[in-house]
Amino acid sequence: MKRTSLSILYLSLVLLLSGAAVQAELNVVTTTTDLADIAKKIGGNKVKTIALAKGYQDPHFVDAKPSTILKLKRADVFIQVGLDLEIGWVPSLLEAARNQKIYFGGPGYINASQNIELLEIPKEDPAYMRALGDIHAYGNPHYWLDPQNGKIIATTICNRFKKLEPENSQFFQDNLDAFINRLDAAIVGWKEKLAPYKGRKIIAYHNSWPYFAAFSNIEIEGFIEVKPGIPPTARHLISLIKTGKSKSIKTVIISPYFDERPAEVVAEKIGAQAVAIAPSVASIEGIDSYIGLFDYNVKVLINSFK
């Protein structure tokens, strides 16, 4: 009897102690892989991250599959790029998710565009905005492609994580500080490498690179697309080829979700290189982090300039 009660005591002690060692992770769902990587860097082992879009998918056109609703239903945090990048698929998913934590305005809902200094805010009369193509009315949404903005995104995420789990505030802050330090050091390196190529001109497929261009001091002279969302016509490509030749452009960049053939044709005609550039983490094999994204892009860009 005495030994039975002792063993029960031991068992309950064991259970108590093992319970103290385990803590539930925050379930973080993001739209893009870049947001997922940054969230993981801040949250560490206190968060579990899923990105709804693959790195090689066009984030404007991710399909709102019903199965995604199951992931959102269980999420504690939802992070989107915002600025209407995901307007075609996120609102209907959040409405159907039955999860007030992550619905617009909920405690776990994060629009990562807050506090970002935006580029290309259209000044056109709203009634004529679509004449400019499928542009984003609030500003160009591809802001994560300036690594300086990565720090702002990380801070926004860190502040929210702290609100949700105040007991882990210091942990998140330490991770944020470490991330920013690493990013700052890397930025110095990238700027040094890019310095000799200041003012270099390139051609891009879609207008997703103004933040990267501003950071790198390169200029985007033209686009394969006639206007955002309008695929190239023969006439437009001919005019682009003329521009490319006259400005001695050596680089045409393409993203993995666009048809590479028009870019290859233009590159061949102007004597330039068609370069696959990474718009997001995991869009190209081997790129598995936000810092890795810029390591890769700076490297391939410089190689094409040489």
Partner: peptide
Amino acid sequence: KFKIILCATLFFCIHNFPTT
């Protein structure tokens, strides 16, 4: 038997304890 149980629980706790 008790010694075995005690060792097992101690081992289990030590395994978790490093974390805590």
